[in-house]
């Protein structure tokens, strides 16, 4: 019976040193790793999905608190950061494009630009966190929503609403924190990629690593595209 089911296929050759032994062709290798990357991004969707779900529920439960808390964060920084990330997505896409064309120096340039923009984003995020710290808006660390609102000429909110705003800020820090963590990991990988690209590790047709990283970077951008309106924008006008 074994003979009926098995016939010989041509032996497995290794012309190409970058072809791993488990794959038959370079096409299969590239296809599999891209497919794997997308499956990984699905796990990331579910990971952030838990946070988005929690946000949705608490926003419904504590709408006034979410309005008050959301209005207290600076739309300016959020908008600038959104633009910064969108620009970094463009530079990343251009990086992949350069890799496909085999333009080594351009690849290094675009990856470098992406790294710079990513760092700018994280820097601005740091400023925002620092502001929240001075306003006593960090849950768990002497949190007091009304701390300096009077001297800033803002309306004080009732005590129960003030307590509930801590839920907003807990979610704000959990969501932006997880996002920032992904950015930091991404920046680390970028440093590695730039170093490798500089040494010519990604010739045309062997830049799957750059492409897959690009997918990751754009994904992180997409998360921010949703975080920005949910945290900064949608609660500015109370819904009745």
């Amino acid at each position: 019976m074994s003979d009926s089911q098995t016939t010989t296929l041509q032996a497995h050759h290794h012309h190409d040193p970058s072809l791993l032994v488990q794959f038959d062709t370079a096409y299969q290798q590239k296809d599999a790793s891209q497919f794997g990357m997308w499956v990984f991004l699905i796990t990331e969707i579910m990971f952030f999905g838990g946070l988005f779900g929690a946000y949705l529920i608490y926003r419904n439960l504590y709408n006034p608190a979410f309005v008050a808390a959301s209005t207290s964060i600076a739309i300016k920084w959020g908008a600038i950061n959104t633009a910064v990330l969108i620009c970094s997505s463009l530079t990343m896409a251009m990086g992949v494009h350069s890799a496909a064309l085999g333009a080594r120096k351009l690849l290094v340039f675009w990856l470098g630009a992406t790294l710079v923009l990513g760092s700018v984003f994280l820097g601005i995020k740091g400023i925002e966190y620092y502001d929240k710290y001075t306003e006593h808006h960090i849950p768990g660390a002497n949190f007091d929503f009304n701390y300096d609102r009077a001297e800033k000429g803002e309306k004080l909110v009732p005590a129960d609403v003030a307590t509930q705003t801590s839920i907003f800020f807990a979610l704000y820090f959990a969501m932006t924190g997880m996002h920032a963590l992904h950015m930091i990991i991404g920046a680390g990988i970028l440093v590695f990629l730039i170093w490798r690209a500089y040494h010519g590790a990604y010739p045309p047709h062997h830049y799957t690593m750059v492409e897959n990283f690009g997918l990751y970077w754009h994904f992180v951008d997409i998360i921010w595209i949703f975080l920005f309106p949910l945290l900064y924008l949608v609660s500015r006008s109370p819904v009745h």
Binding site: I75, F228, P229, L230, Y232, L233, V234, R236, S237, V239
Partner: peptide
Amino acid sequence: TVAAAYQNFGIFNPIIAL
């Protein structure tokens, strides 16, 4: 989306943003 956030469209604000 930033400009729209400053206008009061009531229930439509989150819909527009999302």
